[in-house]
Simulated scan of single mutants.
Amino acid sequence: MTVTLRPMTLDDLPEVMRLEEELFAPDTWTVAMYRDELSRSDTRYYLVAEFGVTADEDEPAGPPVMVGYGGLIAYDDEAHVATLGVTRALQGEGIGSLLLDALLAEADRRSPVVLLEVRADNAAAQHLYRRRGFVEIGRRRGYYQPSGADAVVMRRKRVRALSRIGGGRG
């Protein structure tokens, strides 16, 4: 399966909302929220993940299928992974990692630290974030609405290369 990433557009919102419902109901974002996010291109970075449907001998190739999306809010002092989701049928296939790595690369160009909230009951997502250097720094009780689910707050500092100058041990 070949997955490609591209910037999210307003035309993607029907498919994004379908995935929102699949993944995050009842705590879904609204179309208006996504429209607002996409209008703030100076501090926002949203991507979709797609794979192309290949044709066999008798069938024509279909259009690309959206299988995930992610979004970043980035300021000079900190960035936030705002959302990240992959269709349940393809979770565990590396699509979430691909999206997160792209968001983190953009975050590292803009900010020294990245924060996020993740549902306390989403162990798979927390594991993904820990593998990318995030650590838990707190909890927010009742953060997700309307479900009232708790959130784990996580932080990742940008990794900087250390130079060895002088007589340090090697």
Rank of each mutant, 00 (worst) to 15 (best):
M1T: 14
T9Q: 14
L10W: 04
D11N: 10
E15G: 14
M17N: 00
R18T: 14
E20S: 01
D27G: 04
T28W: 05
T30E: 09
V31Q: 03
M33G: 12
Y34A: 06
E37R: 12
R40C: 11
R44F: 00
L47N: 08
L47C: 04
E50T: 06
G52L: 02
V53K: 14
T54N: 13
D56W: 10
A61F: 03
P63M: 11
P64N: 08
M66C: 14
M66Y: 06
V67R: 02
Y69P: 13
G70F: 04
G71T: 02
E78W: 05
A79R: 04
A79N: 07
V81Y: 07
T83Y: 01
T87M: 02
A89K: 15
L90H: 07
I95D: 11
S97V: 12
L98Y: 12
A102Y: 06
A102E: 06
R110S: 10
S111G: 12
V113K: 03
V118Y: 10
V118L: 01
V118K: 00
V118W: 11
A120P: 12
D121A: 13
A123D: 06
A125S: 10
L128F: 07
L128H: 01
R131A: 06
G133C: 06
V135S: 13
E136L: 14
I137N: 02
G142I: 07
G142T: 15
Y144I: 01
D150K: 00
R155A: 06
R155H: 02
R155I: 11
R156Y: 09
R156D: 08
R158L: 15
A161S: 14
G168A: 09
